[in-house]
Design a binder for these strands. Structure first.
Lengths: 409, 409
DNA sequence: AAAATAAACTCAAATAAGTTGAATTAATGA
DNA sequence: TCATTAATTCAACTTATTTGAGTTTATTTT
């Protein structure tokens, strides 16, 4: 669901143009190699030219040229020479956080979240803007205003903004009528990426919350060292972001990751989607809210939930107990199907509640994921908190400029 | 789990070499572009130079050079000019089936299956060789003998063999002790890809049965037009091959696709793996065999099962009825998680039994996969039959030479 | 029937990257 | 101090694609 909005009007020839994978040439190789170098330094800073050359298979000369380029563009900063070993000490380079940044937006019916994240992964600006209306015109107006504020406050030049990521409620391209209460109205006939790209005059990537959250963790969180992992996102419902070999998995129609409506308890609790025993009916904020309401407790905001947890409220504990087993099954399933390095939990639940939920998980010992050489836990908690989605939106843009695609060409 | 066996002995430097994505240069661009052109023609034959240039973004001149190359190498054959339109009629090209081929092996404890598939997707040779022993030495000997026979019978020159794919029981790198009855002994300390590559003196790819089957369908079956799909493979247990954007998904440790042991019926039938309600306990040949045995029927071979099905044996019908609901849930889950274009069923069950099983599936209407614009059924039956795995092994090699990786570089 | 148009294709020179191999620089260790 | 090791740079080279002009072959229009 990404779009580098360019309004190319290809001739409408009838015999379906049948796109192929793009061919490569010197210029595209250049882009790729710059990403390779940036990505390596991002993951292994500080690093010297020779080291990068060895890791990438490029000649030291090529790396040298690329680094000179990237340094001139402000993406890299020299860190001096590392001494101690034999031979000429390598000049070490690291990402220059002031070199570039990206905007991230989370658009909801009632509010707009804005973030500005630099290529070092640091959050330079973050704000919440209440919205009266969330149609394309109003949203675009607020987004443009928020972008200007964010850029001004960050002290960065506008030319240093790589682009914007936008998270908005999906799924797109298909009507599911799953009683979605968080829908955006007025966007039916608008391609958000193209529309917002024209408004902001910069590249725009539109993505769902769970995937954005996953990338947020990868760029600046527990996912830093992870190449292949899943992010289970507690939003209104439950979402899943899948990253495999550093690439986002979107599925054939951009709707991959609908983990909320997989059946974990056949014949179990009825779900709004018409099925019974959906994971979302047990393990989601909706389910939590329902259980609290049944117990006569009213709590919706994260702060209220955190307070309940602090106080050891029985209704919350009961929810944790009922949410953990279905989630355990779902995670075991993810491990079996996707063989990830880890599964990350995060989103709009307080960290401590998530930690508590993770502690209650019971994952099968006989699993492809229970490797003897594991270094990190099978399940991790995300560290970006409630702004994960907006952060992730920005992170997506950064990820895009830093992460090369799989193979060379 | 693929390995272009090259015995490079990198210096064992302590500070972990930290591999990066490979950089690109002119030569790698060349490889990539040849794959792009081959892949396009393979999917859209016959095609002309200009058409390929438009689809790939390459200049017509570049395409022209590449096609000249590929034709000289024997990979392409001209199909004459297509008339009827305005302008100079384009010279059409198609894959030349005699240009190259790949060997495929399925190694089991008791037998070795061999196939030779050409780049057109046609099976040129196929055989089953009983094995007395399946250790590395014995297997390598039989594989080399079988390779020679296959190549000789195909009438192709040895230089036209691109490589070999090998399917052997996994999972690798981890001991699961799931009561696997189909294990291979003596391979614990051997890297099969390197070992067999040295023996055969050609590149060798080792893969699991389900993934191989998926690629078989993609290269020469119902998966022809599919880029993102899943293959549920009935082997001894139950396997899953995942293809996303034309790339095989192997997971972080090469063990993705363990669909047999996801829990579809919590608290249900006990499984050898220690869990209860695993999909494999219901929907697999093991489960079928068990149900037949309980009914006093003994049938193991595909022919026997087909006969039972033909006769409408109650025990078989009972199995179908018990296998379909768990499988439906599993497929719905795959659809929700991976949003594939289709899910393909295949492997070591007779086609008619698979068709019958598919007919009994009950998939939720409210699904991201139930798109209004669907052209093909959500679930398809594979067409490669019982030799799928060995075919797929060969297909993997062909897929590798024909399918470029995602983005240019 | 001739001219105009359209499209595919080829030729030759230009270009833009990465590669190669020799030379240079700057540290450690004997 | 001198040999060794390793990073880096310089300048010439290589490779594959692009560019732009020109050619071929068909259809459509006049």
């Amino acid at each position: 669901m990404k779009a580098r909005a360019t309004l190319s009007s290809s001739s409408p020839s009838p015999p379906a143009p049948a796109k192929a994978t793009a061919g490569s040439n010197a210029e595209r190789s250049r882009h790729h190699n710059r990403k390779v170098v940036l990505g390596y330094i991002s993951a292994n800073a500080p690093a010297g030219r020779a080291e990068i050359a060895r890791a990438s298979g490029l000649s030291t000369q090529a790396v040298s040229n690329i680094i000179a380029d990237l340094e001139a563009d402000g993406f890299l900063a020299s860190q001096g020479r590392r001494k101690g070993a034999r031979g000429q000490p390598p000049v070490q380079y690291a990402i220059n956080p002031d070199g570039a940044a990206a905007l991230g937006f989370e658009l909801r019916p009632d509010a707009l979240f804005v973030t500005l994240v630099d290529i070092g992964g640091a959050v330079r600006h973050s704000a919440r803007i209440p919205l009266a209306a969330s149609g394309p015109a109003e949203a675009a107006f607020e987004i443009m205003k928020a972008a200007n504020t964010a850029i001004a406050q960050s002290g960065l030049e506008r030319s240093r903004i790589l682009g914007a990521g936008v998270v908005m409620p999906g799924p797109f391209g298909i009507e599911l009528d799953r009683g979605s209460e968080a829908e955006l109205h007025g966007w039916a006939d608008t391609d958000p990426a193209v529309f917002l790209s024209n408004a902001l005059e910069m590249p725009v990537i539109v993505e769902n919350d769970a995937t954005a959250a996953a990338i947020a963790e990868r760029v600046r969180g527990v996912g830093a060292g992870l190449d292949t992992f899943c992010f289970v996102y507690f939003g209104t419902g439950l979402g899943l972001g899948i990253v495999a070999r550093g690439q986002v998995m979107r599925g054939a129609f951009g709707n991959a990751g609908e983990i909320g409506h997989i059946v974990v308890e056949p014949g179990g609790r009825p779900c709004e989607c018409g099925q019974s025993g959906c994971l979302e009916a047990y393990t989601s904020r909706l389910a939590l809210r329902r259980m609290l309401a049944e117990a006569g407790v009213k709590a919706d905001s994260a702060a209220e939930i955190e307070a309940l947890h602090e106080a050891g409220a029985p209704a919350l504990t009961a929810w944790l107990d009922s949410a953990a087993p279905p989630l355990s099954r779902a995670i075991a399933m993810l491990e079996n199907l996707l063989d990830p390095q880890a599964v990350v939990l995060g989103g709009a639940l307080p960290d401590r509640v998530l930690d508590d939920l993770i502690a209650r998980l019971d994952l099968p010992a006989a699993s492809v994921s229970n490797r003897p050489d594991r270094k990190r836990p099978r399940v991790l908690r995300g560290v970006s908190g409630r702004t994960t989605a907006a952060l992730g939106a920005a992170a997506l843009v950064i990820h895009d400029t830093i992460t090369p695609s799989l193979e060379p060409s």
